[in-house]
Amino acid sequence: MAFGGPAQARESLGMYGQWGAFRDPAVPRCYAIAMAEPSTLARDYQPYAAIGTWPRRGARNQVHFRVSRKLAAHARIVLTIADQRYPLSGGGGDAWAPDDRANAAIVAAMRSAPAMTVSATDARGRRFSNTWPLPGAASAMDAASVGCARVR
């Protein structure tokens, strides 16, 4: 499930560390979002991580990553949280969990880890990674869930 850029119309539900929670009433959807840690390396995109809920679609806690570089065709994309590795699906500059079970496992792991990192190979064959701090992520995800709880 793709996200529009973080600059689209939204209502703030709160800031929690480097994570924000927002509601987009036009869709409707709610999401927690954070930018990746800064880097001096080349970037094709501004990387962010988002966990979204679309109540009318019955979709909850959908993990999405915008990575910093255009991905190689058929790139192996891996999310690392603590000592756990999760394979991701993706293309272009985006990556996501391959199914609901993986989404649930990733969201659960995010709640207790200090950081997460996505690693992949870019379109030029170079390895790269993006890292997100996780303090505040659990609160932002909870605020996003509550923000769309009454929407049907």
Score class of each variant (00 low, 15 high):
residue 69 R to S: 09
residue 70 K to G: 00
residue 71 L to R: 05
residue 71 L to H: 04
residue 73 A to M: 13
residue 74 H to M: 07
residue 74 H to S: 14
residue 77 I to V: 15
residue 78 V to M: 14
residue 78 V to S: 08
residue 79 L to F: 09
residue 79 L to Y: 07
residue 79 L to D: 02
residue 80 T to F: 02
residue 80 T to R: 08
residue 80 T to S: 08
residue 83 D to S: 15
residue 84 Q to N: 13
residue 84 Q to P: 00
residue 84 Q to W: 04
residue 86 Y to F: 15
residue 88 L to V: 14
residue 88 L to P: 03
residue 88 L to E: 02
residue 89 S to L: 12
residue 89 S to R: 13
residue 94 D to C: 09
residue 94 D to T: 14
residue 95 A to C: 13
residue 96 W to Y: 10
residue 96 W to P: 05
residue 97 A to M: 10
residue 98 P to L: 08
residue 99 D to K: 05
residue 100 D to H: 01
residue 100 D to A: 02
residue 101 R to M: 11
residue 101 R to D: 10
residue 101 R to V: 14
residue 102 A to C: 06
residue 104 A to H: 01
residue 107 V to G: 03
residue 108 A to R: 15
residue 108 A to V: 09
residue 108 A to M: 10
residue 110 M to Q: 09
residue 110 M to P: 02
residue 113 A to Y: 02
residue 113 A to H: 03
residue 113 A to R: 01
residue 114 P to I: 03
residue 114 P to A: 10
residue 120 A to F: 01
residue 121 T to C: 08
residue 122 D to H: 12
residue 122 D to S: 12
residue 124 R to D: 11
residue 125 G to D: 10
residue 126 R to G: 00
residue 127 R to S: 12
residue 128 F to K: 06
residue 129 S to V: 05
residue 130 N to M: 09
residue 130 N to T: 11
